[in-house]
């Protein structure tokens, strides 16, 4: 559904993208990783022309994004959801207005748009803050509003520009959970720019590694991490292996933590509302899962 050919972009003569080629199939989840400044964000912003590329071609559903007229571009953008690193919510609007904003502006009746926005907000766990302003929400909540907003038009393609980069670990986890569930529930293709290696390994169908404005490695995430060919790949693989081999202290901490979790779970089952920060259907913190352990449900859906 998306094809990028020989894409180039430079700022003031400094090349940021140098001949990027990429194809994304319908429903495919592609994670892009790479060091800062390698062109990841520029690449996905070029896809809906938030950044104008200098050269190359981008085909969305077989039609050129670059050659598209203003109206065609707007139509394409409505089919491409975008989740920003800094949420980019409109501060003067409430949570539900932020989500329903684009649909209402495009002519969807307000009651219809509002109902759909409320549904989406419920899906991302924000049903109780729909009338709040963005400033009244935590970072994680704001990002979940951003995700709901991106989903409002039922896009064919979702672009994620480092959605957890501005969040603390707890809020990151909130967002990653939502993203994982979304990956299971939606048929939209996704291009996710992220630094979350475990997340990418769990969720992505394909992993692209970028460096110096080029895609230096691409393939099955596990395979790429298992036998990296590029320097960036090797760096990520080393980082991953360090996380995979916990120290004795970490093991002990994890055992204590697991015990406490089981205790808490028992209380929870006994009818007490615990303070677990994760959704009820999350049986354990994803940080404890193996990065290679793709959830059964995810595996089944693919």
């Amino acid at each position: 559904m998306l094809e990028i050919r020989d894409l180039h972009k430079s700022y003031d003569g400094r090349p940021v993208l140098q001949g990027v080629h990429l194809t994304v199939e319908r429903g495919e989840i592609v994670a892009i990783m790479g060091p800062s400044g390698c062109g990841k964000s520029t690449l996905i912003r070029c896809i809906n022309r938030l950044v104008e590329p200098d050269a190359g071609e981008i085909l969305f559903e077989g039609r050129s994004v670059i050659q598209a007229s203003a109206e065609e571009l707007l139509a394409m953008r409505r089919r491409i959801g975008f989740v920003f690193q800094h949420f980019n919510l409109i501060r003067r609007l409430t949570v539900w207005e932020n989500v329903a904003f684009a649909a209402i502006m495009q002519g969807v009746p307000e009651n219809v748009a509002r109902q759909r926005a409320l549904d989406l907000l419920e899906r991302v766990g924000l049903a109780d803050v729909v009338e709040h302003r963005p400033d009244e929400l935590s970072g994680g909540q704001q990002q979940r509003v951003g995700i709901a907003r991106a989903l409002m038009n039922e896009p064919d393609l979702l672009l994620w520009d480092e959605p957890t980069a501005s969040l603390d670990p707890i809020r990151t986890q909130e967002v990653l959970e939502v993203m994982e569930r979304l990956a299971l529930e939606t048929s939209a293709a996704m291009i996710i720019v992220t630094h979350e290696i475990p997340f990418a390994l769990r969720v992505a169908d394909r992993l692209l590694l970028m460096d110096g404005g080029r895609i230096v490695e691409a393939g099955d995430p596990a395979a790429v991490m298992a036998s990296p060919r590029s320097e960036v790949g090797r760096a990520y693989a080393k980082l991953l292996s360090q996380r995979m081999e916990p120290s004795r202290r970490r093991k002990r901490n994890m055992a204590v933590f697991a015990e406490q979790q089981q205790e808490s779970q028992r209380h929870s089952n006994a009818g007490e509302e615990g303070a677990c920060p994760w959704p009820a259907n999350s049986s354990e913190p994803s940080l404890l899962r193996s990065p290679f352990a793709v959830p059964a449900s995810t595996a089944a859906s693919r």
Partner: peptide
């Protein structure tokens, strides 16, 4: 101008005029 809001409006497929009317001018 809060440029993040403007970019969000563009990404959502709003016309420039809509971005101005709903995002820039009210602020």
């Amino acid at each position: 101008v809060n440029w993040d809001e403007v970019v969000a409006g563009e990404a959502l497929g709003l016309h420039y005029a809509q971005v101005m009317r709903e995002i820039v001018i009210p602020a």
